[in-house]
């Protein structure tokens, strides 16, 4: 069975304010899907609905054809990992402790971690390139390092679906590229379903297979970067003037913002 995420006619409100309106989207294995849009367009809300952090309506979000509202939290956590926008940990855990927490949904009842869990944690630490930080306190590392640790925790969860909320916005350019490369490689090699909120249009153009463009809680359009990231659509969604070229290396669209409208 294909491990996919499907959103069918999802609406969501915070109190009286409707944030998502009749969203339909599907996310397939082996693909990196980007959610793009201006601030307040509902990207994070959509991601949190899929992750079931916010309670979605019935029959709106499906994981592998199962309605997510009918699944228990441990069941969901075995299918899907979430990398939140920001992480703030007050207690002095080590990096390894935090990544080990990714194994939580797999550790039965009140028992402790096994050697297999430790091996997976080691793999996750290496894959997210934070192995050298393993014994350090989580409070002593930089914001970018913390972001990579949180990504390692999501990897340690060993799920087929990974949701990321602006995973690279706090990272330097080297780590932005390296994390995006890791994510796309995992997605393509292991047929993982990746859904990620991104702010950087060019990063999205380079690494996403599918892009959904959101504005005011609606999906304006969805498809491969070449179809979605055209100057008229970007100008409409972001209210800016921009130029779109073709990246001579990757042949993907490259956006140059000119001014706000």
């Amino acid at each position: 069975m294909e491990r996919s995420v499907k959103v069918e006619d999802l609406s969501f409100s915070y109190g009286n304010r409707e944030v998502l309106k009749n969203i339909c989207a599907s996310f397939k294995p082996g693909m990196v899907c980007g959610l793009l849009g201006p601030n307040g367009s509902g990207k994070t809300t959509l991601l949190k609905n899929i992750a079931s952090i916010l309670k979605p309506e019935k029959n709106a979000v499906y994981i592998n054809c199962r309605d997510i509202t009918k699944m228990t939290p441990p069941e969901i956590a075995k299918e899907m990992a979430l990398v939140p926008q920001s992480t703030n940990i007050d207690f002095d855990f080590t990096v390894e402790d935090i990544v080990m927490m990714g194994r939580t949904p797999h550790i039965k009842g009140f028992s402790n971690e096994t050697n297999e869990d430790r091996e997976i944690v080691q793999w996750a630490l290496e894959t997210a390139r934070v192995n050298h930080l393993k014994g350090r306190s989580i409070k002593s590392i930089s914001g970018g390092e913390l972001q990579r640790v949180v990504i390692a925790r999501a990897l340690a969860q060993k799920t087929r679906i990974i949701l990321l909320d602006e995973p690279v916005s706090q990272l330097d350019i080297h780590h932005q590229l390296s994390i995006m490369e890791t994510i796309t490689r995992l997605s393509h090699e292991q047929k993982l379903t990746i859904v990620t909120v991104l702010h950087d249009l060019n990063l999205a153009a380079e690494y996403c297979d599918i892009i959904y463009l959101l504005k005011d809680g609606c999906i304006v359009c969805g498809g491969p970067p070449k179809e979605v990231l055209t100057y008229d659509k970007i100008e409409n969604v972001y209210d800016i003037v921009c130029l779109v070229y073709e990246n001579p290396v990757s042949k993907k669209p490259h956006i140059i913002p000119v001014s706000s409208k």
Partner: peptide
Amino acid sequence: LLYARQLNVISTGEETAQSLGIE
């Protein structure tokens, strides 16, 4: 004592704990 491990995860954030399958 039985809930100690789950409590560790909750101490790093409620949304995180929820996404890790803790009720």
